[in-house]
Design a protein around this nucleic acid. Structure first.
Lengths: 260, 260
DNA sequence: GGATACCGTTGCGCAATGGGCAACAACGAG
DNA sequence: CTCGTTGTTGCCCATTGCGCAACGGTATCC
């Protein structure tokens, strides 16, 4: 969805708003050409070309060769290093995710609670990963993800009421949208020490997550493995849960040191 | 230096160019207010306010409380995760830098060769660090930094000629600007297996770096420690060099695994 | 080899946007 | 309580950003 005139905040600087949308498109898709960017923004190709030229001049976008597609540039590292908060997860969580993704052959993510959603802060793709999706920096719904359920299950009853107060969006046919049913699932998650997500975010996708504990015993993050339903079968869950728990303890240990 | 009309590329989209400058200011200084941003950009406060409002709406900037200063926002993580190339150093190098910074009490950086400059890809500040400067994503001159010298020393003679072909900028009074003298320094760097930088980038700043080797024995990065001249004395260099070498081997081992 | 289609760039003119000004609200210091 | 500073916002206008048309370059097809 580009910068549709309907619903646009007039206080925004339109050109800047568009430039950010360009960056989001490149981050989401990995790469894109001018024509695609123009279509996404709903502007003329010449407008898209100028926006990209500006971002390229400032090194936030770079081009593959002379005529190739565009993608996020190295200049972005200047800002990544400046992000406060869960940036430590990006630094420290990376190797943990890489190790686990290698062993499981599935995509591994770390997410933290950010307001009303789960924010993905680190990711490593497994060798068998077919999708090239990058979740880092993206927010996912708490009720429709395994990480989200882990984070919800660790919240107080009052906090759960607040987080689940709104209508639960049906992200996929199998999404749990009944608050009562979801609360039962969360109670079981707290008992089991892990949460699953069987085609609840999108069809064909399974995931399982476990909590990451802080020094005070509280849950500060969730670490998950995701993959196609045919590979992440129920039979395989106990093994994956155990590997996630090992990785979670490793991460806690490293985070404990990192935030000293 | 804000967006001075003199020397500005007219093909750039000015608003976007300014917005990027806002982000660079926030990344460099950690935080800033509207008045400071306006001064840096050379625009009116209302203009700065609108640019920041737009970046805030897109989550690239966030505010500390209701009236506090502004800083880089979590939304930036979406793009950081999409950066290709040396992003692995950001993930894997982080813990190595943090460990070493803790032990040395100085700021530790990892840099790679990027065109004609050294690109800083990971950093951790030591406990004794007085400056809050964030180097990640920033480019520094090869001839005036310890990391740069390490990367230069590992290059072939032909490559060194190319990299040193232009005029060597005097970044500080003690910068080596004579190419012949620099080549002698680089030969000694190759022999010693480390490079120093004694107030050559800026007055009062000392640094020392060692190479990070790839699986083929080539130099793929440099890891350095930096601090004020009074703390990074010559007497202390042998200890620091040894610690850097241990960290370098650790990093090589981790990188070897990560790029599998 | 020529024709066609597509992509990305650039000069130009114009309308919409971005920006400065003034006024205001809020907060902190004295 | 007063004053100074910071940040916000309505309004108006000049400048900028944008669309159009034309062009060059590349790849594909016949």
């Amino acid at each position: 969805m580009g910068n549709n005139e309907v619903g646009r905040d007039p206080a925004l600087v339109q050109s800047v708003d568009r430039a950010v949308t360009v960056l989001e498109l490149l981050a989401r898709n990995g790469e894109a050409g001018i024509t695609e960017i123009a279509a996404e923004l709903g502007v003329h190709k010449s407008s898209a070309s100028r926006l990209v030229y500006t971002l390229q001049a400032r090194e936030l976008v770079e081009q593959d060769g002379e005529r190739g597609p565009f993608r996020i540039g190295l200049g972005m590292l200047r800002f990544a290093g400046a992000v406060s908060g869960p940036i430590d997860y990006v630094r420290v969580g990376g190797p943990v995710c890489v190790d686990l993704a290698d062993r499981l052959g599935e995509t591994v993510n770390i997410a933290v609670l950010d307001g009303d959603v789960a924010l993905n802060v680190s990711q490593a793709r497994g060798g068998s990963a077919v999708a090239a999706q990058n979740w880092v920096g993206q927010r996912t719904p708490l009720h429709a993800t395994s990480s989200g359920k882990v984070l919800l299950a660790a919240a107080s009853a009052a906090e759960q009421d607040r987080l689940l107060g709104g209508e639960l969006e049906a992200c996929a046919p199998r999404t749990i949208t009944d608050p009562s049913r979801l609360r039962r699932v969360l109670r079981r998650t707290a008992e089991d020490g892990f949460a699953t997500c069987m085609e609840e975010l999108e069809a064909g996708l399974h995931a399982v997550a476990v909590p990451v504990f802080g020094s005070g015993g509280d849950v500060v993050a969730a670490i998950s493995a995701a993959g196609p339903a045919y590979r992440l079968s129920s039979a395989r869950m106990p093994e994956i849960v155990e590997e996630l728990r090992v990785a979670s303890r490793d991460l806690s240990a490293r985070m404990g040191h990192a935030v000293a």
